[in-house]
Design a protein around this nucleic acid. Structure first.
Lengths: 261, 261
DNA sequence: GAGTGGTCTAGACCACCCA
DNA sequence: GGGTGGTCTAGACCACTCC
């Protein structure tokens, strides 16, 4: 244990022993006695210090892990989670002027911030619209949509999985239905096709990841995701794309400007 | 067990037994064989079905709980989480026209949606600005701010804790420094004082709650929070308020409009 | 090989809920 | 009082990491 001094258990308290232990460790982290990346005392050390069974220690460590404060590394130890740099998304990120250089938003931004962007798992299909997508695009579930799904990575770390839905009537046979949607991305293609984009609506939820999402984003336990659904509207008010994206919450800060009018 | 049929364990698989069991139950939930509010088979039933020790079952249930899929109720059982109705926050929610009726945004909106809003734990202090708040308000940490903290509830359920910081130079001695900030809330007061509001910037993060936040919001395990920081700017570009709020993620859907320009 | 966390067993007693 | 989950013990064996 050496460096880190932990209090003893309070024999009076009716707070469960494993919670008391979790409290001590959480305190040490919040007070900065344990820093990002520091190793938490091993299970054996904690057992000896508190004089309790291993399961009790493991329960305590489990609490911290599900709070997103620590990560366990098999064979190495338990460490205070270190937070990787975040990507800040501004509310003008899809403004036209950012499309002109011929790069899709993600690529341009990531390079601008000195990171190495990549995209993989690109899959394109044509399907019937789901009820939710149909409603957002003002279609019926009889109508077909082009479905573009892909995963975004920064410096090899997956940060976002996204699925776009575009009415097949618009996109079928165009470059939008190709894996490489070309310079400027699909918003640029839509504008070339005469769909003048006016604004987007974004809906944001936060929740714990599903199993597949946790795997695709290589999420540590205790890391929630943003679930963002964006709909793109033309100047005529027509919805031409729905983009459903799931983002690692510790890779992003979203930022928006609101009118006070 | 009666209604719910669960698969057997795969003796070949090297996936841990408790994970296989968690997978089976997760599947049942995702496929709709278990609905919101349904009781998951008891630990005893699961032990018998799978022929494993109780800790193994508890580990499996723990996985689901930390994924936010279930909640355990002491003495009653484990239940599939039911999601309460959410409050949708539109990006024009702080527009001036919504302030004119004399109600603060939260009250007006909640009543509009047929809910019973309340506010408690109102505390007002005057403190030195923290480095973060100082930076956002373009003050120094020598400067003082009025700190208004409160908790918002809908139908008695806590959904949001908020802390506003207003430069003391502006707010000291005014109604903004009183527990009841008066009709229309502090944004209305600021405008009456000649600070014409122009726009707000909101920064959104998502993470697991700290211990105190989980308690104040009565969060079930496995429910993340939105952490939203809003700064209000006048037409002269001066930052006059920072509002730091933590919201239960299963009570809110945030919604924003972005320009395509 | 020594030390770490990962999984699992087989008990025990307690606190809570409901009939 | 019977069933439920909450806590805790005292072992066991395994897999991974690092020296």
């Amino acid at each position: 244990m050496a460096e880190l001094s932990l209090p003893d258990l309070d024999p009076i308290s009716d707070r469960a022993v494993f919670r008391q232990i979790a409290d001590h460790l959480r305190d040490a982290i919040e007070r900065g006695k344990l820093h990002q990346g520091d190793k938490v005392p091993s299970e054996t050390q904690l057992m000896q210090h508190y004089g309790v069974a291993r399961m009790t220690i493991r329960n305590a460590l489990q609490v911290l892990q599900s709070e997103g404060l620590t990560v366990a590394e098999h064979g190495r130890g338990v460490f205070v989670r270190s937070h990787p740099p975040v990507r800040r998304l501004a509310s003008d990120r899809f403004a036209r002027r950012h499309r002109e250089q011929g790069k899709a938003a993600f690529i341009a931004e990531t390079e601008g911030a000195g990171g190495k962007p990549s995209v993989d798992s690109i899959k394109i299909t044509e399907e019937n619209a789901s009820p939710d997508v149909a409603e957002r695009l003002k279609l019926t579930t009889e109508d077909c949509v082009i479905v573009r799904s892909r995963r975004y990575l920064i410096n090899g770390r997956p940060v976002e999985i996204a699925t776009s839905y575009i009415p097949a009537e618009i996109a079928r046979g165009t470059q939008i239905a190709q894996p490489d949607s070309g310079p400027g991305g699909i918003y640029r293609r839509l504008e070339e096709m005469g769909f003048q984009l006016d604004h987007y609506m974004e809906e944001i939820r936060s929740r714990m990841p599903l199993r597949d999402e946790a795997r695709a984003l290589k999420l540590a336990p205790g890391v929630p995701v943003f679930h963002l659904i964006r709909t793109a509207y033309t100047t005529e008010g027509r919805a031409v794309e729905v983009c459903d994206t799931v983002m690692s919450s510790d890779a992003y800060v979203l930022s928006y400007e609101l009118p006070a009018r």
